[in-house]
């Protein structure tokens, strides 16, 4: 659905929302309070970003007792990849990505 994809790209266009996804990628299943720690944003701003991410289906939430936990949902990003990356390109792209990472993290090489 086109509007589904629009929501994904709009949600990803904001660096604060990408930071929130990074945090869930590092440690999945966090509460709003945990996500607010060490972030230079108000709780209200973080809550608003999380709502947009959930509307774009980039995060899923689960209730656990009185807490609401947030989980990274990579499925829409995977579908974007499926749309433009062919099966046989995947291995070569991974090799290029690994090379870039190796060169950029070991600049003495």
């Amino acid at each position: 659905m086109p509007d589904e994809l629009d929501r994904v790209f709009k949600a990803l266009a904001d660096p604060a929302r990408r930071t929130l996804l990074d945090r869930l990628f590092a440690d999945n299943g966090q509460t709003l309070g945990q996500l607010c720690e060490h972030l230079d944003m108000t709780r209200q701003a973080v809550a608003k970003h999380l709502r947009l991410l959930e509307e774009a289906n980039l995060i899923a939430t689960r209730r656990q007792g009185r807490e609401k936990l947030h989980f990274l949902n990579p499925v829409p990003i995977h579908q974007i990849g499926e749309r433009w990356i062919r099966k046989f390109e995947r291995g070569r792209l991974r090799a290029l990505s690994d090379l870039k990472q190796a060169l950029e993290t070991h600049d003495d090489v």
Partner: peptide
């Protein structure tokens, strides 16, 4: 350890 994935299917 847990993950939650969501997908909408027509």
């Amino acid at each position: 350890s847990r993950f939650v994935y969501v997908i909408y299917i027509r």
